[in-house]
Amino acid sequence: MGLAKKGHKTAVIDFDVGLRNLDLIMGCERRVVYDFVNVINGEATLNQALIRDKNCNLLYILPASQTRDKDALSQEGVGKVLDELKKDFKYIVCDSPAGIEKGAHLAMYFADDAFVVTNPEVSSVRDSDRMLGILASKSRRAVDNEEPIKEYLLLTRYSPERVKLGEMLSVDDVQDILSLHLLGVIPESKSVLNASNSGTPVILDEKSDAGQAYADIVARYLGENRPHRFIDDKKGFFRNLFGSK
């Protein structure tokens, strides 16, 4: 959504076959006719399956199938769909399911860039490390011995207060473990829940902290230089400044 808002024609593919929810979050679940698996099987054309976003006409969504299992996706089929999309779209975002199984493997296999989204917890960071290992060894670029996938780190559900209390890993802790370029930090925010409940991506909520964090992240990815705004505890800073507690 952020990329499309910046004027780039963008497609989002949901690779979470069987557990589709991208269309829910994007608020287009009631317009799903065909899905990703239909396109791979030749039961529908891409144009029939792609759903144009109601908020932004440069954004299209290719929903996952809810009725098939993950074996319905094949590497060859996914490659074909991506090749076709490439002709028309500037960016193709593949939303990977959690885990290291087939869906995740196919979502990352053809990637040029990868965004690893992690929570500031040891187990989540460890899983991310594992995914990075797979990106570096099992992706098409790795297999064909090409220049490796560019990897970016997104740290989400971040709460500086809880970091201070020692309940959460800090940005530095996570950076230390993963040693990866940090594209942005998304604060823990009620606005995310509101957004997903109402089916409008949080980035459209320009007043929200999480929305702003995502906007910064997109801008940074596109080459803008923006300072990180959500790493430090701003509220705490002012609280301390005014001596109230």
């Binding site: 290291i100 460890r126 490390d129 594992r130 990075l132 290992g133 797979i134 570096a136 060894s137 490796p148 040693s179």
Partner: peptide
């Protein structure tokens, strides 16, 4: 390159890792 969780490296001679 970093050696990530789940990766294994075997070298017959010396193994030098910068990451």
């Amino acid at each position: 390159q970093p050696i990530r969780s789940g990766q294994r490296i075997y070298a017959t001679g010396d193994l030098v890792i910068l990451a």
